[in-house]
Design a protein around this nucleic acid. Sequence first.
DNA 1: TCTGGGGTCCTAGGACCC
DNA 2: TCTGGGGTCCTAGGACCC
Length: 432
Amino acid sequence: MPLFALVDGNSFYASCERAFRPDLIGRSIVVLSNNDGCVVARSAEAKALGIKGFVPFFEIREMCERHGVTVFSSNYALYGDMSRRMMQVIGSWGIEQEVYSVDESFITLDGIADLKDYATRLRADVLQRVGIPTCVGIGPTKTLAKLANHVGKKFPKAAGVFSWDWLTPEWRDKLMARIEVGDVWGVGRRIAEKLGTMGIHTALDLQRADPRDIKRRFNVVVERTVAELNGISCLALEDVAPNRQQIIASRSFAELVGDVDTLASAISHHACRAAEKLRQQQSEARMVGASVRTNPFRERDAQYTGWIVVPLIHPSADSTVIAHAALAGLHAIYREGISYKKAGVVLTEIGPQGLEQRDLFAPLPDPRRAKVMAVMDRVNAEYGTGCLAGAGVGGLDGFQLLCGQPLPCFFCAHGVLISCSFSANGLLMLCS
DNA sequence: TCTGGGGTCCTAGGACCC
DNA sequence: TCTGGGGTCCTAGGACCC
């Protein structure tokens, strides 16, 4: 029987910031979302002050000033890098590893004699080599490992490591009875509410619920959660991350936007980001969605959500092809006289590159374009995201310029326009 | 005044087929 | 008045996760 452990970085984004600011050890930290909109991470000290997750920053700004909370804008490049390093160290301790999220990893630990000692040394290793404090939860199913992790965090006596095995059945029940059902993995707000009306309030109540009844009233997912709470493993460790079936790139604007050019600039930027993610997993997309919407929190404003899906003639991972489709979509959904808050691009019907059935009569995509994209990705990987970008990304005019040419132009971050072409022997040439 | 950005899976219902 | 019994595929919407 497998034994799962969930290793999870404590207050991950806040811990990443603190790893470079030892002066902040023991102090309150919050990290904010894009545009400093709302709170996405809080150190334990900030939680103790009563700061909740995902609250808009303006509601707690004054409180932060009063208590001397250090506030960070988010730095996702840093968190991604810290995450990779942390996962690598954790992976060296597990038999198998599934990287579940930016700050969580499931590992299997079958056959290890002294689990408490092992998990304690694992934590110390991650802390020493990466500078991130973690908690380890151990159980016979992923759901129980996750719940054990919750216990490890919530009860200081656990010292960051907890396994259900260490308790007698009576104490296990007592502890389960102290955990709210909404803290169980897979039980969100809606399901917790409905369970409450059925008299199921705690993890213990759910563990003892009738699985058939749960399936009838909810679905197979919640039924599986009940089984997992009873030690019946339904969720396997997924050690190879499957390719994304959908890729989204979207952002809110710091200020409301009304003109189509600014929207177009944002949409083409998001399209290029999405296409880059697509190429990273060696896929192509058949559908490109574009969306814009107003600010739903400004209830006095007229609300509008525009959404359209544009099919591509050939599945593609080419930034310019995808940006072109997204911009065509934008022009179809754009309404004048509206203040927009957010724009985004979604890629769907994703499959591996080069597998499509070609249309006999449609013109073939220029194969050299893939080389251009590959060069752009490599340059950006080496010198930083956004170093090279499609010439249209700055605005609509640039994009039209780019579409009129057989191959995309680039401009670099310093505003120098670089055009590209191929020599007779197939070498890609860039010239400014 | 100021409210994130990604993802997944499941279900129900309709269209359509034989 | 009575009106089969399957199956598939697609979409929208709802729920969850971090």
